[in-house]
């Protein structure tokens, strides 16, 4: 199967899954926080596993890429006033990068 089709297939699962989980979002966007944290953790894990081109296209570029969303995060952040918006930005950044690093360590067999 072509790389483009595999990306589309992974995203066709990841994007609707995000859409469903994001319904948990209220003033605290806990659904999107969970999605962006879990998706970044899986991305780090897959990066450490040295997947082949096809598996990377399906799982990392397709699924993780479309499961997580920067545009939704950015709009949610600017919609929240002052401290709430800043807290959401810091939480997303720290959790996403932290989960990615942890996922990579797990995949590399270091944790």
């Amino acid at each position: 199967m072509s790389t483009v089709l595999l990306v589309a297939l992974g995203a066709a699962v990841g994007a609707p899954l995000r859409y469903v989980v994001a319904r948990l979002d209220g003033y605290v966007p806990r659904g999107m926080l969970a999605v962006n944290t879990i998706g970044s953790g899986l991305f780090g894990l897959f990066a450490a596993l040295s997947l082949g081109e096809a598996a990377w296209a399906l799982l990392a570029t397709g699924f993780c890429g479309a499961f997580t969303s920067f545009s939704t995060f950015a709009v949610q952040a600017v919609e929240r006033p002052g401290r709430a918006g800043a807290g959401y930005v810091v939480a997303t950044t720290v959790l996403a990068v932290g989960a990615c690093a942890l996922g990579w360590l797990v995949g590399a067999g270091l944790v």
């Binding site: 994007a15 994001a22 962006n36 780090g44 990066a47 570029t61 890429g65 997580t68 969303s69």
Partner: peptide, 20 residues
């Protein structure tokens, strides 16, 4: 929104590239 633009943009690659 959550479809086209949600799938276009990504936090996981951003975090992954930062970590790398």
């Amino acid at each position: 929104g959550p479809g086209l633009l949600g799938g276009f943009t990504t936090v996981s690659a951003w975090a992954g590239e930062t970590r790398h």
